[in-house]
Design a protein around this nucleic acid. Structure first.
Length: 222
DNA sequence: ATCCCGAGGG
DNA sequence: CCCTCTGGAT
């Protein structure tokens, strides 16, 4: 399907500034931020991580963290009990199995507490430069609207897209669809009238197609 | 399939 | 009120 590669190329033109929007300075910080980003906006994650990273500078710090103190620091991101357990378990597992460092292989990453396939691929792509598709809620929604698949299972969706796009595009494409999903192709009311890849999308017309209406949806009322 | 869970938009 | 936000573990 050539349409897939064309769509990826057009998205790159539309969103030249697309990138990982989580703030981090190390693989560990990225892993922690990504765990916190589950069912939460990256903006909110970035509001809690400065204090978090200061308080817990390495894996051992998370392993020995006081649960209540940790929960208080991450509470605004939601699911704070589960996430606190994941972070404490992550720190302990890193100290035990990986000398306190975050491993750079998918097989090792997905064995760590709180790190599933999506989070593992985020860490690989943005901290280790290893190509990976990060199939989250945005990724799945857009790829289905693009008509590339009707499957819902993230692992299957990943396999489909892996066949359609060259590996060298995987990490950037993930950023692009997530960015496009946030700015234009909203879950609820997609701004089809303001969408630069509408001509390549079989779902065009799903949302408002009037450019004026779409503009207010994207940028907010003037 | 279900639970975890805070915050903001409509 | 309902839905959604860069999911993962049971």
């Amino acid at each position: 399907m050539r349409r897939a590669r064309r769509t990826a190329r057009e998205l790159a033109v539309l969103h030249p500034d697309a990138h990982c929007e989580l703030d981090f300075t190390s693989p560990l910080e990225l892993a922690v931020a990504t765990i916190l980003s589950a069912q939460c906006t990256d903006k909110r994650v970035n509001e809690v991580t400065p204090a978090l990273f200061r308080r817990y500078p390495d894996a051992a710090a998370y392993a020995g963290a006081d649960r209540e103190e940790l929960e208080a620091l991450i509470r605004p991101t939601g699911f704070f009990r589960n996430k606190a357990s994941s972070l404490i378990g992550l720190g302990a597992a890193l100290v035990e199995r990986h000398d306190g460092e975050v491993p750079g292989r998918l097989e090792d990453l997905v064995q760590l507490p709180g790190i599933g396939r999506k989070t593992a691929n985020v860490v690989l792509g943005n901290a280790f430069g290893v190509p990976g598709l990060t199939v989250d809620t945005h990724f799945g929604r857009l790829v289905r609207r693009f008509g590339w698949t009707e499957l819902d299972d993230p692992v299957k969706v990943e396999a489909v897209v892996a066949e359609l796009l060259p590996k060298s595009d995987w990490t950037m494409f993930s950023h692009l669809v997530i960015f496009h999903g946030r700015r234009v192709c909203h879950s609820r009311k997609p701004a089809c009238g303001a969408c630069g890849v509408a001509a390549l999308c079989p779902s065009y017309g799903l949302g408002p197609t009037d450019p004026e209406v779409a503009r207010t949806l994207v940028k907010g009322p003037a």
